[in-house]
Design a protein around this nucleic acid. Structure first.
Lengths: 219, 219
DNA sequence: GTGTATATCTCGGGG
DNA sequence: CCCCGAGGTATACAC
């Protein structure tokens, strides 16, 4: 990684055009060639950047980064205050826990928590407009489409509504009910779901994980 | 801005939990207090971060960043390779051109490109559930609601559908047709729009801008 | 503050 | 390769 602190101005032309007037900034060049321009504030997002793969041409006072998509980033250096380079080696990467995929997996394994007598038909049931998170049958054999979110908002209800509309055109499945499952459901999403006859279920990730973890089982 | 290069491990606990095994990384601390952990590759996004406002407690070999939302980032330093600090001063900020707002402005000025004989009623026509990008009348005086996107995806069709449902309750406007205008329309969005009787229009930003630019006019 | 819409969204997975 | 969905989305703006 190369870290240059310099008074510079920057122009980007690509998906949009953007310009940075002259000021002191950090220019970060990573081992994979990607370039990012950071100000000293304003959260983690750089002011301007160019992702790999790209080509970096370093001139006396102008750096030009271009990529195969035809985008370009031009950095004009007015005054270089610092310029250091370091070797990092490989990064083992980030380990995440608690995202939607885990929730979906746990609910697929334990879909009786969604309703008494529920049995799994399929996880990621494919349709023409995308995959239904979980398809179940209830205690009397009726089909239930389940949409799972970490945070239940309006978008999720819209998504489930589209699936239901499509699934209900299939005589083998009809009638299909909807169930919106999330760790937290926003009031507006709950209202919209109710308006469309979609049931809501708040699920507790930690509790589910505990049920799934053999070391925490009581029996 | 303080830039520390160190062999470190990191733990985040908040909206999810995440762990970074020991490796060499860049720790960036900006003037506003935000902290970001960068690997030497993998685009501009840091592996882990904590935005301002937060509280950074720096110990001998452990830094703990906490924020008012109850999230925490714990950095354990195993070996500090470099540690530099610089003053940047204020940044004038990024100037952008070519985002959705510009496309909307150009189409409002030239709404005949949306359809022969179209005339503008209002830009940003306010409704209870948000502003309709453009409201037009067609050649025979019927109302057309236009939703504009840079990239037309399913969300945009849903958005326009909600507006149409509301607008069509107004006897002064009824019947209102929908037009989904974007520089690029994804296949699924096109299918959903077709299914709902919403027309699609692909518009060329550069062409529109050229039409708008007096220096490029031929007449 | 909450809700809504945008983003050079980024990033990852599946066909 | 594109398409789609999730995101600790972040961010700006309106109500």
């Amino acid at each position: 990684m190369r870290l240059v602190i310099a008074r510079c101005s920057v122009d980007y032309a690509g998906r949009l055009t953007a310009h940075l007037p002259e000021a002191v900034r950090l220019i970060m060049v990573k081992a994979d060639g990607c370039v990012a321009i950071h100000a000293d504030g304003g959260a983690y997002k750089p002011l301007n950047w160019m992702n790999a793969p790209n080509i970096l041409v370093i001139g006396d006072d102008t750096w030009v980064v271009t990529n195969p998509k035809g985008e370009s980033l031009t950095i004009t250096l007015h005054d270089v205050l610092s310029d250091v380079q370091s070797e990092f080696g490989d990064d083992p990467g980030l380990q995440k826990d608690g995202v939607e995929a885990h929730l979906q997996q746990l609910l697929a394994e334990r879909c009786e928590v969604l309703g008494a007598g529920y049995t799994l038909v399929r996880r990621e049931y494919m349709t023409a407009i995308g995959p239904v998170d979980i398809l179940c049958r209830d205690a009397v054999g009726a089909t239930v489409a389940v949409e799972i979110k970490r945070r239940g908002e309006i978008d999720g209800v819209e998504q489930l509504t589209r699936y239901l509309e499509l699934l209900n055109r299939d005589p083998l499945l009809y009638p299909v009910r909807g169930l919106f499952a999330a760790q937290e459901i926003k009031p507006q999403a709950r209202v919209l779901a109710g308006d469309r006859g979609i049931a809501c279920a708040v699920v507790d990730y930690d509790l589910l994980r505990g049920m799934d973890d053999p070391s925490q089982r009581l029996f």
